[in-house]
């Protein structure tokens, strides 16, 4: 299964990644982090195809998808 990495230092919680994901594999976190931002988290990574649109459209270089078996 693919894995989601979100860099807590860089993410500013704009949630563009969740909006552009065609498979709805991400969702907003229930918790607010120390900076006051809501970060994305995995909702159902079985659906993730590692298309990379979240990495491509991230304004803060904070998100990365690790493909299974790579």
């Amino acid at each position: 299964m693919n894995r989601l990495w979100v860099d807590e230092r860089y993410c500013k919680g704009c949630l563009i990644c969740i909006d552009v994901c065609p498979k709805k594999a991400l969702r907003p976190s229930q918790e607010i982090n120390a900076k006051g931002y809501i970060l994305p988290e995995e909702s159902d990574m079985k659906r993730c195809t590692a298309c990379g649109i979240c990495e491509l459209m991230c304004p803060d270089f904070a998100i990365a998808i690790e493909e299974a078996g790579r």
């Binding site: 230092r9 860089y10 993410c11 500013k12 919680g13 704009c14 563009i16 931002y37 491509l56 459209m57 991230c58 304004p59 803060d60 270089f61 904070a62």
Partner: peptide, 18 residues
């Protein structure tokens, strides 16, 4: 550290840089 980027959350400048 130089990062995170200075732009506001959701700014298009970071996206264009990407």
């Amino acid at each position: 550290p130089r990062m995170p980027l200075i732009f506001c959350p959701g700014c298009g400048s970071g996206q264009v840089l990407n």
